[in-house]
Simulated assay, not measured.
Amino acid sequence: MKAVLTNQCISIQTRQRALQCYIEPILMYGCEAWTISKQTQKNLEATEMWFMRRMLRTPWVAKKSNEKVLKEAHTKRSLMNKIRKRQATFFGHVMREGKMEHIVTTGMMEGKRSRGRQREKMLDGLTKWLNAGRVTQALTATMDRDVWKDMVANATKQGT
């Protein structure tokens, strides 16, 4: 895809659509089950900017800020927002299903917790993104499909 994405004869909008159609699905494969830490988020955003710079043929050593590159491409960052939306949609589906995945996803497992700092759960990241306040508020919102869709739509409009 390098020949298509870096071809200057093709408009930037067409190259961006090719990126969205062919590259992003591969990059986001299985993202519904990811727990995104700050480092993972930085890596994903850096990857997104790397693709933009490659499409515009902006060298890495050029002193252009990410904002200038995005302005030149007539776009804004959207990868993290897409990932979070897919996670929220999947999470709502799992919570309404109410089977084994529900127990695993919410972390309501029996037994002792390991020593040290506990890993962040996917639910914690989604709660922050949705501005739900408490985890219980997010869990109760998933049971009503329309309320959950509205929460996800509002969070998507606001961005990451």
Rank of each mutant, 00 (worst) to 15 (best):
residue 57 R to S: 07
residue 84 R to L: 14
residue 37 S to H: 06
residue 2 K to S: 09
residue 78 S to Q: 15
residue 107 G to R: 03
residue 7 N to V: 03
residue 124 D to W: 03
residue 70 L to Y: 00
residue 31 C to W: 07
residue 143 M to K: 14
residue 11 S to V: 04
residue 129 W to Y: 09
residue 19 L to C: 11
residue 153 A to R: 13
residue 37 S to I: 00
residue 57 R to T: 10
residue 2 K to P: 00
residue 143 M to V: 01
residue 124 D to R: 11
residue 6 T to F: 11
residue 142 T to E: 00
residue 146 D to W: 10
residue 128 K to N: 08
residue 77 R to W: 05
residue 89 T to E: 14
residue 80 M to E: 04
residue 57 R to E: 09
residue 43 N to Y: 02
residue 143 M to Q: 15
residue 82 K to L: 08
residue 23 I to G: 00
residue 99 K to D: 06
residue 127 T to Y: 00
residue 129 W to R: 05
residue 58 T to M: 10
residue 149 K to H: 07
residue 149 K to T: 07
residue 142 T to I: 04
residue 67 E to V: 10
residue 33 A to N: 15
residue 54 R to Y: 04
residue 14 T to Y: 04
residue 104 V to Y: 13
residue 65 S to G: 05
residue 155 A to Y: 00
residue 70 L to V: 00
residue 140 T to V: 09
residue 43 N to R: 15
residue 97 E to C: 08
residue 109 M to T: 02
residue 9 C to F: 09
residue 79 L to G: 05
residue 69 V to E: 01
residue 81 N to R: 08
residue 42 K to A: 12
residue 3 A to I: 05
residue 93 H to A: 11
residue 76 K to A: 04
residue 134 R to Y: 09
residue 146 D to F: 12
residue 116 G to S: 00
residue 131 N to K: 15
residue 25 P to Y: 11
residue 127 T to G: 02
residue 38 K to I: 13
residue 56 L to H: 01
residue 20 Q to A: 08
residue 87 Q to F: 03
residue 50 W to Y: 12
residue 24 E to S: 06
residue 65 S to P: 00
residue 115 R to C: 11
residue 32 E to H: 03
residue 3 A to N: 13
residue 73 A to V: 06
residue 148 W to G: 08
residue 45 E to N: 10
residue 5 L to I: 15
residue 96 R to E: 04
residue 89 T to N: 13
residue 149 K to D: 11
residue 136 T to E: 14
residue 8 Q to I: 09
residue 150 D to P: 00
residue 105 T to G: 01
residue 40 T to R: 09
residue 78 S to A: 11
residue 46 A to V: 10
residue 74 H to K: 12
residue 64 K to V: 09
residue 149 K to I: 08
residue 127 T to N: 07
residue 28 M to P: 01
residue 127 T to M: 02
residue 158 Q to M: 11
residue 87 Q to S: 03
residue 53 R to Y: 05
residue 73 A to H: 04
residue 40 T to S: 12
residue 35 T to R: 14
residue 106 T to G: 12
residue 50 W to G: 09
residue 155 A to M: 09
residue 97 E to L: 14
residue 122 M to G: 13
residue 61 V to N: 15
residue 27 L to G: 00
residue 115 R to Q: 12
residue 40 T to Q: 11
residue 154 N to H: 03
residue 116 G to D: 02
residue 115 R to D: 13
residue 45 E to S: 14
